[in-house]
Nucleic acid binder design. Structure first.
Lengths: 188, 188
DNA sequence: GTTTATATTGAGCATACATTCAATGAACGC
DNA sequence: GCGTTCATTGAATGTATGCTCAATATAAAC
């Protein structure tokens, strides 16, 4: 038992280290050796824990697909309140830099051209937009959000957030924006 | 003379092809061979026109630094009107996919970790934020924009736009957003 | 205490690509 | 026409790096 737990912990350590490095330097510029060194093990041992660099990325993306985007919001909370709370949470993480934040940036990174196909597909299947579309439609019915194509609005919402998160990742002195600014893109 | 003109034209063709490929597949996954093939020349000849792949990228980034971000807006036009017009223009390009749009996406790409250092530095020096900060401060004085740290607001504006542009680049069926949505992030 | 399974290492293999180069062809100057 | 310069090619080179592997240490099982 201890053996298996040990292995699982080690895997987790590798994953977290890789996540940080992938976000800091980008996937392509993070060498297996870099990760191994950062974790404190030999290059070869990496392949005892993960079959390949891509498999390592894939594992991370799998974790990412279960993140904030996949949650289905409670119907009783007003859409604007829900989204504001969500943004507050996310920006709070951005300051403290835990893995949730890095994961957010990685998921954005992975969707872009030039990333391993399988990881790309997987991250694309983690559809954060659909729940937001529903939320926006509800907001429109309730008269809090302006009219317009809900899907485009949802995409714009996420795209903006992604841009902002990435900026926060690169530019550590940037102040966290007021969630209300972003919500006003949707508000009437 | 014709000789030099010919060479210049060829260089331009290479640059435009490379720009498209860099945006479509990402810098690292675009091989020199791919560009050569797309232009219709041998691999070796590429190095007659550009010293290296990085030099090719650098040349593109140099062009990019002279783009829309570097223009200093006219003081007589109201800030919200100016930004709305700017966004309209940019989104119009997005539909027609000419090099201006691709350039926008490339400049964002280049600023990220994992890109050649020199290109990164150069693109970082092309400061689109400062003019926008001024514009936002003017808007705040005039009472059209809400209060708040103007620099953060400007960064958020550009970051959002970047996120949206990248989404437009990846997702060709996406509808163009209403510029007013983005401006309302700033509006009172 | 012996056997078996797992952990760990670092040197070496294989591959993918940017880059070079010797050789050839085409155009231009005179 | 003829030599000089530029254009062009594709094969060869060098390098970076993901990954394999034989060897060894360490722990588990009995």
């Amino acid at each position: 038992m201890t053996r298996k737990e040990q292995k699982e912990e080690r895997r987790q350590a590798i994953l977290m280290t890789a996540l940080t490095l992938f976000v800091e330097r980008g996937y392509h510029d993070t060498k297996i050796t870099d990760i191994a060194e950062a974790v404190g093990m030999s290059t070869g041992l990496m392949f005892h824990y993960f079959a390949s660099k891509e498999e390592l990325l894939l594992e991370l993306v799998r974790m990412g697909t279960m993140g904030p985007g996949s949650v289905n919001p409670d119907d009783r909370i007003p859409p604007d309140v829900y989204l504001t709370e969500f943004l507050k949470q996310v920006f709070k993480y951005a300051k403290e830099q835990p893995w949730v934040f890095n994961m957010f940036v990685l998921m954005a990174q992975v969707r872009r051209p030039g990333m391993p196909e399988e990881a790309r597909k997987l991250s694309a299947s983690a559809d954060a937009v659909s729940p937001t579309v529903k939320l926006i439609k509800r907001g429109q019915r309730d008269g809090i959000f302006h009219e317009g194509d809900a899907k485009t609005m949802a995409i714009v919402f996420w795209a903006s957030l992604q841009g902002i998160m990435e900026e926060l990742a690169m530019n550590k002195d940037m102040k966290t924006p007021d969630p209300e600014w972003i919500i006003s893109m949707l508000r009437k």
